[in-house]
Nucleic acid binder design. Sequence first.
DNA 1: GGTATGACTGTAT
DNA 2: GATACAGCCATAC
Length: 119
Amino acid sequence: MSARKQERQTKSESDFFHNVYEVVRLIPVGRVTSYGAIASYLGSKRGARMVGWALGNSYLHEGVPAHRVVNKAGVLTAKLLFETPTTMEDRLADEGVEVSNDQIQNLDKYFWDPDKELS
DNA sequence: GGTATGACTGTAT
DNA sequence: GATACAGCCATAC
């Protein structure tokens, strides 16, 4: 229906950004998710790059635990964007997530799927 | 308005 | 099994 298109136009500001921040904030402590999971939840399965890109700007938005967002392999791809290369894994470790060599251990155990948790 | 880029993901070779 | 390429969506120049 055209209603959907109209709705999107109304929120054409950057609903994708806002949605990303909202979802990331909802990630429970000690849990992590992937860009693809968020993108899929937002309706763009292939929009994972946008999620990462959006989070790249999230450093301007406080309250957005970007350190809880990693790629599907559980690798801390964004650690280099933090204040220090160890900030990301240090924060995750502090939350109880096992991180080793820039990669989350037992990812399946800590993985948080917004599509399932927020359904 | 077209081109380039990006914290990704999946398929193909 | 690992590497290479393409796809996909949105923003910036």
